[in-house]
Amino acid sequence: MTPPPRALVTGASAGIGRLYAQHLARTGHALVLVARRADRLEELAASLREAHGVDVEVLPADLASDGGVQRVVDRLRADPLVDLLVNNAGYAVRGRVAELDADATDAMLRVNVLALTRLSIAAMGRMVAAGRGRIINVASGTVFMQMPGNAGYGASKNYVMAFTRTMQAEAAGTGVQVQLLIPGVIATDFHEIAGNAIANFPPERVMSAEDLVVASLRALEMDEQVCIPSLPDTADWDAYVDAEKELVVNVSRDRPAARYHA
């Protein structure tokens, strides 16, 4: 009997990660759930086992710590049945650069950047060797914005975007799918934790976490590498990429542009 596909989801105890776990369980995936709060993971695991009869493993880990990241890296490397990694864990520390809490920003970058990188390396290495697998890396719509007070978080998600797009280029022809997910404002407790409130956003700009996850998983089925769930026309993303290509032509020349010559 062929074992069911297995997905490892980070940040699984609440919000977007919890919805990924629920939808993947509903479609028959076994799960490895990662988050700091073991009690929340156990509650979710019990409900998923009862509702869907799937195998659910709880893996408590603080992805801001080296030890926590290593636990998840070891789990990814040890299990060839994990064929989907959802790199969802992340949070925002906000404030103007001159006033940022440096230690809090460092901890955020450990989760948003370093943990995602190390888990991607572990998963990509094993999946490429196996010739199959799927990775979803969650960025943010703020990658397209320069908002005062958002330098640290926005930059961390720009890293996710750049890192993931290069992963996609390297994954070509290997049998591994890599999705870059770029959510907008999502109705979770993310904003309250970051010191904002979902009520501060116009309702027409706020998407449910369920709709986001459904779009992401559908995009995976469609082999759509970049999923911006509320984007009406993917030609807008293509135009963004084409604009980059125009810059590439002139970003490295043998002399400065004419305007720099007095």
Rank of each mutant, 00 (worst) to 15 (best):
E246L: 12
L114V: 14
V248L: 13
G154H: 06
F163W: 07
L231R: 04
N137T: 05
F163E: 07
N137C: 04
S216L: 13
E210W: 12
D189V: 12
Q179N: 08
Q146Y: 11
W237Q: 05
T188R: 02
A155D: 13
N112V: 10
A239T: 11
M147I: 12
A239S: 10
T166E: 10
A172Q: 02
R253G: 13
T117G: 06
I228T: 03
E244Q: 11
G184K: 02
V251L: 15
L247M: 13
G133W: 02
D236Y: 15
A197Y: 08
V143N: 03
Q177D: 15
Q177S: 15
F201R: 05
S156R: 00
Q177I: 10
S252R: 12
G173E: 07
A172I: 05
L114A: 14
V206Y: 01
V249E: 05
A107W: 09
N158M: 15
D106P: 08
L119D: 12
V251T: 14
G152Q: 07
V178Y: 03
T117W: 00
D223P: 06
A139C: 07
L181C: 03
L247W: 14
D106E: 12
M147V: 14
E204S: 15
I136T: 04
G133C: 05
A243R: 08
I135W: 01
P232D: 10
F201L: 13
T234Q: 15
A169F: 06
M161S: 06
N200T: 14
S156F: 02
G195E: 04
